[in-house]
Design a protein around this nucleic acid. Structure first.
Lengths: 134, 134
DNA sequence: TAAAAATAGTTACCTAGGTAACTATTTTGC
DNA sequence: GCAAAATAGTTACCTAGGTAACTATTTTTA
């Protein structure tokens, strides 16, 4: 019978490894893992406030502030004031949208390698089990 | 059919959430996730060099140097020079060994919560699938 | 055996997570 | 309607991941 601690431990080991190598592949595009995740989220879901991003990623506000500032400085996003003057609306720049497919392509090829040992059926089962976590 | 990118994305989402809450529970013992992982590893496998720790966790050398220095400063480990004068042998202190079971107990209770939606059979399947990653 | 190459670890600096304490708005409630 | 409370975001500082460039040993090899 497999132990809870071994599951969590192996999960961390693999995710650390996957992200390390994902960063290698993103480096060619001048991006980091966290920044790519935000681009992916905004591309699929349109403009969002910082709070929405914070809640979606289960990450604290200062983390998002920092990463978005870097992304703004590097021309990936714009941050405009919303109707609520406290809030900032985050949008992908046209330049980011143009680059999106190229980046997605190399990320997809990396992700395929990471999952190549799983059959389609196993991927489905795996995904269902991940959803049951927490 | 589930997409590779969704699997990796959800994996990251869940692991980020699990570790965030694991840190909450470790805070009571004056520990962080990475430090607890090293204690766990040394407790199960005995004294190791920094290189062995680096290789086991798929982490770069400077990361390990830093974390071990903090752990030494806080009395969790000792770092002694090996026969190879370049190498350092890392050992748990007696104090760390004494505290081990208490910490493991609260970590175990946290991990159980994270996995409570999975049956024993599902946990086995999940563990097998995790092993197939990378 | 002496020079070159490899290995173990460190230092300096990058991004990404966290908490605590703060400002500036908006919402609530008396 | 004004004071209190809640909310959105920022700043300062903590740990944890990374790379590049370095020192000090050990191993290889010519």
């Amino acid at each position: 019978m497999v132990k809870n601690q071994d599951i969590i431990h192996q999960l961390n080991q693999k995710v650390r490894y996957i992200n390390k190598h994902l960063n290698d592949c993103l480096k060619n595009h001048g991006l980091y893992n966290a920044q790519w995740s935000i681009i992916y989220y905004l591309y699929k879901n349109g403009a969002k406030t910082q709070t929405e991003i914070t809640q979606y990623f289960h990450v604290e506000a200062p983390t998002v502030t920092r990463t978005l500032k870097r992304m703004e400085a590097n021309g990936w996003i714009s941050r405009t004031q919303g109707q609520d003057k406290r809030a900032r609306l985050i949008q992908l720049t046209d330049s980011a949208k143009e680059k999106y497919f190229d980046i997605e392509k190399s990320v997809a090829s990396h992700e395929e390698k990471m999952l190549e040992q799983l059959s389609e059926e196993e991927k489905n089962v795996f995904y269902q089990l991940i959803q049951k976590l927490v």
